[in-house]
Structure formats: C-alpha cells, structure tokens
Design a protein around this nucleic acid. Structure first.
Length: 284
DNA sequence: GACCAGGGCCGGC
DNA sequence: GCCGGCCCTGGT
C-alpha cells in the first residue's frame, strides 16, 4: 500500500513548481498527480481539498521533501515586500504565487542547466530523462515501476562525447563530458561551493567549460539556494527592456531577488508576449 | 520546405 | 567587448 501524508501548505502549487523551469524531472502523470525524482527517491504529490498530499512516510518527508520543497521559507512574506506601485511584479508574483525555489541536488542542477542553454523546456526534459535512463541507476518505486536516479559525475565521466551526443545533447555534450571529468578528477570540487558567498560561488562555477554568466546564476539560485542570484535569460531580458527601461531595482530586493526572477520568468513564459494559449498579448 | 527561436557559451578578432 | 558558429527540434 502506498504511503501518504497530507498537510496544509500556503503558497504552494505543484503545477506551477513543475512548470517553473528550474527542475526538469517533475511531471504531470494522471488525475492531477505529479511525480518527482530527486536524491534518488521517487515521490508523487497532488492537491486534495486544499491540502497537499505526498506519497511518502512522515520520516521520509521530514528527511528529504520538507527541505526539497523549501517549506521553511515564508513566500507570502517575500511577496509583501514587493513595491506596491510595481504593477508588473505584483501581477507576476500573484500569478506564480505557488512557486518555490527547490533545494535540488547541486550536481543535477549543473548538468541540467548545461543542457538548458539555447534549448527549450520540452527538449531539456527529454534530454535529461534520456541521460537518466542511459546512465542513472534503475530503481523500483512503491508502485513497482522502474525509475532512474540522476547519473553521477563518475557515471557521466566514463561516457564518450559521441555517446552523449546520441542523447540529443548537441554541442552541449562536450560541456557535460568535460565538467563530469573535472569533478571526477578532482580539478573541480563541488563541496567547497556550499561555503562560498553568492559572488564567489558564481566566479568558481564560471570556470567550468560551458558555464557562462547566466548558467552560473541558475546554478547559484537552484543548486546552492543563493536567492540573491538573478539569472538574466532571453525572457527576463525581454521583460527588463519592456517594463524596466531604467533598470530593475535589484537593491530593493536584496536577499530574495531570485524568487522575484522566478515569478517574472514564469509569468512571461505562460502569460507574456510570446506565451501560447493566452490568445492575447496584453498584460493587464 | 525555409526559417526562426529556445532559460547561451566559446573562441577569434 | 562584439560577433559568428554551434546541435537539434518544434513551431510558424
């Protein structure tokens, strides 16, 4: 029988987290349920009568998922600090109020954001899943189905660039290959990164082949939980040019600018000028 | 079918 | 600091 716990959580919408573009292994399965694979574990979660249900024991929740979903952060309090006269940000934050900055595994974030460059969400997911199926560890979940953990640096370092290219990674294959090798050879260690401040961690990450300013910021935000990081990608750049011609007030939002970045990103992707399905280009 | 953009980065200038 | 090239796919 499937284990299950249920709880009240504010500012938490599973579908928003899954589609927020920070995590590529959280998928809609059936009946409003979502699956997520992280730290080698498989979880299903869904909303039910205003509560959130997790398919795990209380112990597993406390050990892993509570932290993973960043349950100790008060996102409502963050949103209240947004400048009330900033109409765009207020709308964006309201629209994505169920988003959380997950505490994912650093290695996985490094690799998935190497994959993310000049790529789209659908294909990032596909590439990531292929990589996991090919080089991750096969495990069995509570349903008796097989799932794959995210491949370790050791596993990926052994794979040839050609084999990685066969996972449809394109030119990113060499970035992943070299990065995995650097980590395995000890030329780049991950653990010291956790002790660094945002700016220093970013500087270190940029040393990795294939990691530039934007990807380094994503790794800082999603892999090291440096919520000061404010990654500027094509969507955010467009938003900044359109709504903040005089510059985004980063100083005002020190300590949580990254969360606002996520609201703006999610809002633009799903509701912005090029968003599909809104049938409109208006933003109130 | 052609063309473009998608959570950019590298290397040459 | 700027810019061409890069893998591949899905959408127009």
């Amino acid at each position: 029988m499937e284990p299950m716990i249920k709880m009240n959580v504010d500012n938490f919408r599973i579908e928003q987290i899954a589609d927020s573009g920070q995590c590529f292994r959280m998928n809609s399965i059936e009946n409003g349920r979502y699956s997520v694979i992280a730290f080698g574990e498989y979880l299903e979660l869904w909303h039910e009568e205003g509560q959130v249900c997790f398919s795990c024991s209380q112990e597993e929740y406390e050990q892993l998922w509570h932290s993973y979903f960043d349950m100790d952060t008060d996102y409502g309090r963050m949103r209240k600090q947004i400048d009330p006269s900033d109409e765009y940000l207020i709308c964006a934050a309201e629209y994505g109020s169920g988003i959380r900055i997950l505490r994912q595994e650093l290695w996985e974030v490094i690799v998935t954001f190497l994959i993310s460059q000049q790529n789209n969400m659908k294909r990032i997911r596909k590439c990531t899943e292929t990589l996991c199926q090919q080089y991750g560890e096969g495990k069995t979940n509570f349903k008796g189905n097989v799932f794959y953990s995210f491949p370790t640096a050791e596993a990926l370092a052994e794979v040839s660039e050609e084999e990685l290219r066969a996972c449809n990674l394109g030119y990113r294959a060499k970035y992943i290959k070299r990065t995995a090798q650097a980590v395995v050879d000890g030329n780049f260690s991950l653990s010291p990164l956790f002790d660094l401040e945002y700016e220093e961690a970013k500087k270190e990450l940029i040393k990795l082949y294939g990691v530039g300013v934007k990807v380094a910021d994503c790794i800082c935000l999603f892999g090291l939980h440096h919520v000061d990081a404010f990654p500027i990608d094509t969507h955010i750049l467009k938003v900044l040019e359109c709504y903040y011609p005089n510059g985004f007030p980063l100083e005002r939002y020190q300590g949580f600018a990254g969360i606002l970045q996520q609201y703006a990103f999610y809002y633009d992707v799903n509701h912005g000028l090029n968003a599909k399905g809104t049938g409109s280009s208006t933003i109130r």
